[in-house]
Design a protein around this nucleic acid. Structure first.
Length: 422
RNA sequence: GGAGGAGUGCCCGAGUGGCUAAAGGGGACGGACUGUAAAUCCGUUGGCUAAGCCUACGUUGGUUCGAAUCCAACCUCCUCCA
């Protein structure tokens, strides 16, 4: 295992040096061979994304950043959408089977994910990145044909040794043949991509190690090709916790799942101890700049957090959105600023019909239930137009509206909304 | 196949007939402090039209005025034996 950020002087390839320096390397199948290959010239590299949700989240940013760096350095990325593999469900490190998604959900999810990836790798031009859906080939196989061609290349003996399925087997929790075959499918993906696009390298999360290794072995057995694998580290906080959750849920990359401002806020709230590492991982600032920012202390570190937030938001949502988010953040948190554009719009009629404070909080998503809203109010965490309200029976009326019929609602220090009525 | 043990709220875990919407811890959220950080302290943490009602301790039935707690069957997991 390699240590992130450690300058690797013995490496020949710039690519691997950059990835290491950025902290994007967890383990590699054959580091020296990979280094030699990368030093030789451009390679085609792929990472796969299963369509289990309508958006990718911050965890997926790691392999995507690795692909961006590689593209910058002249390599060609392929983003593989798991339209086929999602029909099976990856059992890696899971203690029970995932609920299976139907075709409709999968294709909707594929569309959302496509949109996320689109922003992160450059698809333009002849040498641009490629996006493919593995349903393209996986759905074409006939069962007997598949078993004969590929089933013969895998032994169950070997397959059960993988850490990713071990705990499931040891716990005697049922692992269906369907799920068990997932690793074969991902291996076939790699083989297929090597044949179609001359793809020689796969990047994935550390939980993908077993699946990647299977692909490498299949490439060697079936075609006698030398394929390479690289995993990125698991995204954790300095506290060691798995990362990517906020009060509002997962940190999604798709703007319809999480607003660019919400995304910016997530990064703005990074713990001090994580700033340096995150700047390295999720921005493209030169490494000496990253180091300079990491050395800031105390209050000054907040500047680094803003830079981090704005940089990452720019990569995921675009420079324009990032600037807006930064401005919003500044306005909202430096003194008496308020949001300028409504974040939610409710029909005007609900005012005359009688809109309770609790209902309002639920409607704008600041609470899941009336009970939760009640607790927030009782705890003194709710403000209307910057006034703390502790009356749970408070009704919202026309008199509460400020200029342009707007109502500023805030919960806690960080959740703020501007509700418009029309 | 035989014997024993276990399944509790988001997670871990106490609870062996009424005082139990269920101890304690973690997490999460709110408050104080601060730097939109960490640490610390305080509070909250099933739902509802909140007085009251409803739903909850693997599942389904049963005993009882009353069950997370007792009984039966079933499901799942763990340990030991074959």
């Amino acid at each position: 295992m390699l240590e992130a950020g450690k300058p690797a002087t013995r490496l020949k390839s710039e690519t691997l040096q950059v990835l290491l320096e950025r902290g994007l390397v967890n383990q590699a199948s054959d580091l020296e061979a990979l280094d030699a290959r990368l030093a030789e010239g451009p390679v085609t590299v792929y990472a796969g994304f299963d369509a289990t949700a309508g958006s990718l989240h911050v965890g997926h940013l790691m392999p995507l950043m690795a692909m961006r760096w590689m593209q910058k350095l002249g390599h060609r990325p392929i983003a593989v959408l798991g339209g086929g593999t999602t029909q099976v469900g990856d059992p890696s490190f899971r203690n029970e089977a995932r609920p299976l998604l139907n075709d409709l959900q999968i294709s909707a999810n594929v569309a959302g994910i496509r949109r996320c990836i689109d922003r992160l790798v450059d698809m333009s031009g002849e040498d641009g990145a490629i996006m493919v859906d593995n349903a393209e080939w996986l759905t074409e196989f006939r069962f007997l044909e598949f078993l004969r061609d590929y089933g013969s290349q895998f032994t169950v003996n070997r397959m059960v040794t993988f850490e990713s399925v071990k705990s499931r087997l040891e716990a005697q929790s049922p692992l269906t043949v369907l799920e068990f075959c997932y690793m074969m499918l991902q291996a076939v993906d790699f083989l297929e991509l090597s044949r179609r696009y001359n793809c020689e390298m796969q990047i994935g999360g550390s939980d993908q190690w077993g699946n990647i290794v299977n692909g490498i072995e299949l490439g060697r057995k079936a075609d006698g090709r030398k394929l390479h694998g690289l995993t990125v580290p698991l995204l954790t906080t300095a506290g060691g916790a798995k990362m990517g959750k906020t009060a509002a849920g997962a940190v999604w990359l798709h703007p319809e799942h999480l607003s660019p401002f919400g995304f910016w806020q997530f990064w703005r709230n990074t713990a001090d101890a994580d700033v340096g590492r995150f700047l390295r991982l999720f921005t493209e600032l030169p490494i000496n700049e990253v180091e300079r920012l990491s050395l800031l202390q105390g209050n000054e570190l907040n500047e680094a957090k803003k830079i981090l937030s704005t940089q990452v938001t720019a990569i995921v949502h675009g420079a324009e959105e990032a600037r807006t988010a930064l401005e919003q953040g500044e306005a909202l948190f430096s003194g008496d600023g308020d949001l300028t554009d409504p974040t939610h719009v409710l029909p005007r009629e609900c005012l005359s019909e009688g809109l309770g404070l609790l209902e309002l909080l639920v409607r704008i998503g600041f609470a899941d239930t009336n009970g939760e809203a009640r607790r927030l109010v009782e705890g003194g965490g709710v403000r209307l137009n910057r006034q703390v309200i502790e009356d749970v029976r408070r009704q919202i009326s026309v008199g509460d509206l400020q200029a342009e019929d707007r109502l500023a609602v805030a919960v806690g220090k960080r959740r703020k909304a501007l509700v418009g009525f029309s």
